[in-house]
Nucleic acid binder design. Structure first.
Length: 106
DNA sequence: AGCCTGACTCGGA
DNA sequence: CTCCGAGCCAGGC
């Protein structure tokens, strides 16, 4: 049994490049991983994560919010992890992509 | 194979 | 600002 699809692996490798204290959007990860317009696949891949080798908390949606998921409460975990890295949220629970967005070179 | 769902995004109304 | 609709792919039934 292969671990996961090659696409998942490319997504995970890209997410691992996000530096501490910075965030990237699902669409951004998809594009950097060489599959533009497949943001949804990124969310899917992260949802299927098992191990802790991937900094999944550094991926947020295009509006700078933590996406809600089926299991309630996990959003709070993500926010906690990010705040621990220095990422600040406003009263609406949104962060500034201007300030904390990851802008990789190439 | 079909059908539904989901850690998404973008453009238009 | 909000509310669709379309485009997208993987998994489960």
């Amino acid at each position: 049994m292969p671990p996961r699809s090659d696409r998942y692996d490319r997504i995970y490798r890209t997410v691992r490049r996000i530096p501490r204290g910075r965030v990237a959007t699902y669409g951004q990860i998809a594009k950097l991983a060489g599959m533009p317009n497949q943001a949804r696949l990124v969310g899917y891949a992260l949802h299927a994560l098992q191990d802790g080798r991937v900094p999944w908390q550094r991926v947020v949606n295009g509006r700078g919010e933590i996406s809600v998921r089926a299991f309630p409460g996990s959003e709070d975990v993500q926010r906690e992890l990010l705040e621990r890295e220095g990422v600040r949220f406003d009263a609406r629970g949104r962060l500034s992509l201007e300030r904390f967005g990851w802008r990789p070179r190439r």
